[in-house]
Each structure stands twice: as structure tokens, then as C-alpha cells.
Amino acid sequence: MSNNIHPTAIVDPKAQLAGSVTVGPYAVIGPEVRIGEGTTVGPHCVIEGRTTIGRDNKLYQFSSIGAMPQDMSHGGEVTELVIGDRNTIREFCTFNTGTFKEQGVTRVGSDNWIMAYVHLAHDVRVGSHTVLANNVTLAGHVHVGDWAVIGGLSGVHQFVHVGAHTMIGFQGHVAQDVAPFMTVDGNPLAVRAVNLTGLKRRGFSDERQRVIRQMHKLIFRSGATLDQAKAEVEGLRGQGGDEDIQTMLDFLAASTRGLVR
């Protein structure tokens, strides 16, 4: 057994752990688990199911990773959890595998900061560079875009999509899709402004910020119908933010839960 694995840990012989993986006391790792170089598994973590974890992740104590989905229709089919690289996963997190209602995979990207007691249900997709604060709960089939920030004690309803570069405030009750680049909070949840602080931190140019502010006004402040607003957004092309315009239009086209406005 590797010197990096504490003698009280239980690691199934069939598990595939890279040589530099560190496993803390009393952790349990199942036979279908694969873990990449440099990842640290804290004390008392349980990693089971068909779970793949990439490089240089840090899992803190008492997390449950890769358990079967909490879905009463799940018949024991073999599904997966895939986690990327350089994620921080704090204490008492619970990530479940997917179901065949979607693609059979729950997926987490890279460079995410995931705080204590976060729950990722079956078939969730979390992008990269996100922040999920303490006690965030994502129901089944929720998709979260890159660079999104979700405030503590927030719950996201099943099938909701959260766009890239969004900011959801503390105790958000998220029952509809949240458009990219927006800050939302309150009860009921509402769009408050463009997430300019986040965009500036990520180096968005003045031109890109201006176009995003125009999209915000057209969609959320003009009083136009959503179809009218989308047509107006199309007319903004050529002003230096075409990539962001496409991100917004693609998101709106895929929205099925209605839009937080």
C-alpha cells in the first residue's frame, strides 16, 4: 500500500489511484473509483460508484462522493460521476451519480470552489471556475455555467439552468432559469443588475460590458416580450460583444423553465 494512504483507510484493490494521491484516515474508496495525480482525499470521506476524479483536487473530511442517485425511479443502473481538476470540495458535500433520464453522468468541471454541505443531485452539470457557497443544493438535472457564483443556503429547482457569469444572492429560491451575466436575489427572485464586478475581475473589456448592459436593458427593463427582446439583442451584433450575444441567445433558446426577470 502506498505511503500516501493512511493505514486505517479502506481502499478496494480494484480502485485506480495515481501514485501521488493522498488518502486520509478512515476514508473508504470503492472498486470503480479512479483518482488522478495530486488529489487529496480527507479523513472519513466515502467515494463509491463509478466515479472519476481528476488531478490536484482537494476533498475535505466527511464528504460522500459517488453514491447512488436519490431518485425513486432509479433501478440500480450503473451510472457515473465525473469530476475534473483542481477543485476544492469542502466538508460534508454529497455528490450523486447520474440517471438514464439524461446521459447517465453527473459532471463537475475544473477549478471550482465548492463549500461545505453542498449537494449535487443526479445528472447535475457544473462548469468550471464556479463558487457554490455553504449549503447550496442543486436538484436533479440542474446545469450551472462557468464562473457562476451561487450564494449560501440557495436551492435550485430540478431542470433549472444557471447561466455563465451569474451571481445568485444569499438564500436564493431558484425555480426558473437565470440568464448569463446577471445578478439575481430576493424573494421572489428577480434580476437586479449586470454582474459587473465579476465581469471586471475576469477582464471583460469596456465594449463587452457595454453590450451586456444593453442586453440587460432590452431583456429585463424595456417591458418588451421575450421574443421582442431577443430580436433587439440580435441587432446588437458588430459592437464588440458578439460572443456574449451568442451566449445569451443560445441560453434563451435552450430555456425550458421560464426566465427569472
Rank of each mutant, 00 (worst) to 15 (best):
V82R: 14
S222R: 13
N112H: 09
E232K: 15
V160Y: 06
V124G: 04
G19E: 08
V160A: 07
L196D: 10
S205T: 15
A67S: 13
D250N: 14
V131D: 01
M115F: 01
R50P: 02
I245R: 11
T197I: 15
D85N: 07
K14N: 09
H44P: 11
G152R: 15
H173A: 15
L138M: 01
V260N: 10
K58G: 03
S63G: 13
E77C: 05
N87E: 00
A193V: 06
R107H: 03
V126K: 01
N135T: 07
V11R: 08
A148V: 06
I5P: 10
P25G: 14
N187Q: 15
A9G: 09
L218N: 10
K101H: 07
N87W: 04
A231L: 07
N135K: 08
T247H: 10
N187V: 07
H173Y: 11
I53G: 04
A133H: 12
D185A: 11
G172F: 15
V260S: 05
Q70K: 06
G30A: 07
P188F: 13
V126M: 02
K230F: 14
H216P: 04
L120F: 05
M215A: 08
T225V: 05
F100Q: 02
A9Q: 06
I212T: 08
S205M: 05
Y60E: 02
